[in-house]
Nucleic acid binder design. Structure first.
Length: 553
RNA sequence: GCCUCCGUAGCUCAGGGGAUAGAGCAUCAGUUUCCGGUACUGAGGGUCGCAGGUUCGAAUCCUGCCGGGGGCGCCA
């Protein structure tokens, strides 16, 4: 039985009790909270329904619990019900009912655990959005992993999701970038405020190889040619690297197209109609201070130039025009000052900033190697890039370790640890469990055991370790739903680590395959189903992290 | 000055108002005729930064302080 099914049973019992006037409730809940008790002595599952409903029922929680417990005890799939503490209801399932979950998981396959809490909602998840003026650094790498995982988790909750990368291909930084490449190509010193990385030299060399006559162009033309060629090459570099990082964007949105397509004018028209635009000192402003922002923002400077803020504004309006219900932004902590102004944009556009826009702020990433912090600097020559990290630890370890912490906690990656193939390294611990199960199932095949077509008797699963494992498996759906709702994919990783531990404990105590010349018993088949179910959940969970589930390692 | 994040075991960190606050590492002590020991079992280790408040109940929510990271001024 899945916890969702159990929740349904509890609701049925409550409804019946209300019908018989044993409970007096104005409103019967659609579902109740079903949790695994921390202490296994308390049974398979627990619900706080009585505590939640006591006030409404006008009864002490324990009396409400007694009514619910009585109804549950009459059900054949429930072995026993206890009331504890202030009114917890602890439930132990009948032998076969708990084990049926393994069948549901195996039959559910890759789709097991998915939910519908976000069915029908369209999300735009924007992340990284680096300038196309250099390689992606470690901060970008965190967003690549986390943003993609958030998108995956949202999809698993039924949502339609677009992953979007905003390309800042307009403005001063692009010009500095172009000027830097041109300077190097002409063997001149790079401007003081330009880009100095080694990659600038490589870009210059490639462009010179492709366009040998480029330095013969007049300076103004040459500058544009270098800038555009560098842009094309650098963007392609970022795209290739992200592709290799298992992060695939649906939309690469160029800031230039925002201006060329008339999106800026459309956005301005909308904001003007909403009544939040005004002119002062020759500049055009958005009155964001009408909302949470601490001051008004300039859209068009007095010299006629559009500000970066104007692009942000038009971009948001454009996303909403494209039909997204919720626009999620992932920004680094160094951009946290943008939160209020972004939310104010939504408000000025007539949207609800608590519904249509979400800005997630992530703390920055540090990296340790040999006990020393490696400093990051986009402008400096010594830059730690996504490729550097992947080269050292691989895509799986990189993604997993970036995902397994809440984004609002600062992250320190210990490279020396991440290359270890031991269980200090959580991704190996989880992947190892998957490989170990795969091995057991392979061995079953070699013994001629086809557990899939053999009859599965779930009542065979009665060992304490088996029930523990089943309980954890049953928590997977709720973990996904919570991770999606809170935009916290790290919960998936933590869940997988707990699940792996419980699998190892089961494996240590419960022999799965018949030994030597032992006959094949129904218990063996049942345990193989449990193994297969566990492997499926681990694989599904790793997929939500964008991490591979190896059958051998 | 204002904003924001953090403060939980020796270390790195989980813990969306619920039962005795958890995990990994580290330390110490154990476990294997045969399915992957890259595993498992046990022990020690805590005024959950401090003080108030909200309520049946607070590590969790609110306020104030202390300590630390980061940010903010027609810049991109």
């Amino acid at each position: 039985m899945t916890p969702e099914e159990l929740s349904g049973l509890v609701v049925d019992v409550i409804r019946a009790a209300v019908g018989e006037r044993r409970l007096d409730l104005a409103e019967i809940p659609d579902a109740v909270v079903i949790e695994r008790p921390k202490n296994r002595d308390h049974g398979d599952w627990a619900t706080t329904a009585a505590l939640q409903l006591a006030k409404q029922a006008g009864l002490p929680p324990r009396e409400v619990a007694e009514v619910i417990a009585e109804g549950l005890r009459a059900l054949p799939s429930i072995a026993s019900v206890d009331i504890a503490g202030p009114g917890f209801i602890n439930i132990t399932l009948a032998a076969g009912a708990a084990g049926e979950l393994a069948r549901a998981i195996v039959e559910g396959g890759p789709g097991f655990g998915r939910g519908a809490t976000n069915q029908g909602r369209r999300f735009n998840v924007e992340f990284i959005s680096a300038n196309p003026t250099g390689p992606l650094h470690l901060g970008h790498t965190r967003w690549a992993a986390v943003g993609d995982a958030i998108a995956r988790v949202l999809e698993a909750s039924g949502a339609e999701v677009a992953r979007e990368f905003y390309v800042n291909d307009r403005g001063v930084q692009m010009d500095k970038f172009g000027a830097s490449i041109m300077a190097v190509a002409n063997q001149q010193p790079v401007p003081e405020d330009g880009y100095h990385g080694e990659y600038i030299k490589h870009l210059a060399q490639r462009i010179l190889a492709e366009q040998p006559d480029i330095t013969a162009l007049p300076e103004a033309e040459q500058f544009v040619a270098f800038r555009e060629a560098g842009y094309r090459l650098q963007l392609a570099q970022q795209q290739g690297v992200l592709d290799g990082f298992n992060t695939h964007f649906d939309v690469w949105f160029s800031e230039r197209t925002l201006h060329e397509s008339g999106a800026v004018e459309r956005a301005f028209a909308k904001l003007r109609a909403q009544g939040h635009m005004f002119e002062e000192e020759g500049a055009v402003w958005l009155r964001t201070s009408d909302f949470d922002d601490d001051k008004d923002r300039v859209l068009r400077k007095s010299d006629g130039e559009l500000t970066y803020f104007a692009s942000d504004t038009a971009y948001y309006v454009d996303k909403r025009d494209r039909g997204f219900d919720v626009c999620i932004y992932l920004l680094g902590a160094d951009h946290h000052g943008y939160v209020n102004r972004l939310r104010a944009i939504a408000s000025c556009a007539g949207d609800d900033p608590n519904i249509n826009i979400e800005v997630l702020i992530g703390q920055l990433v540090k990296m340790m190697k040999g006990g020393e912090e490696v400093r990051l600097s986009k402008r400096a020559g010594h830059m730690i890039t996504l490729e550097d990290l992947v080269e050292e630890v691989g895509v799986d370890a990189a993604r997993y370790s970036l995902i397994r912490y809440p984004v609002d906690s600062p992250l320190v990656l210990d490279l020396d640890l991440l290359v270890k193939r031991t269980n200090d390294n959580p991704v190996f611990y989880v992947q190892y469990a998957h490989a170990r199960i795969s091995s057991v199932l392979r061995n079953a095949g070699e013994l001629g055991i086809d557990w899939r077509i053999a009859e599965f008797d779930p009542a065979q699963l009665v060992h304490e370790r088996e029930l523990e494992l089943l309980g954890a498996l049953g928590d997977f759906s709720r973990t996904i739903a919570t991770a999606a709702e809170l935009r916290e994919p790290h919960r998936i990783a933590r869940y997988l680590e707990d699940l792996a531990t419980l699998y190892h404990r089961f494996y240590d105590n419960c022999r799965v395959l018949p030994r030597g010349d032992e006959p094949l018993e129904p218990m063996h088949i049942a345990r193989l189903w449990l193994c297969a179910a566990t492997r499926q959940v681990i694989a599904n969970g790793l997929d939500l992290c964008g991490v591979s589930a190896p059958e051998r390692m």
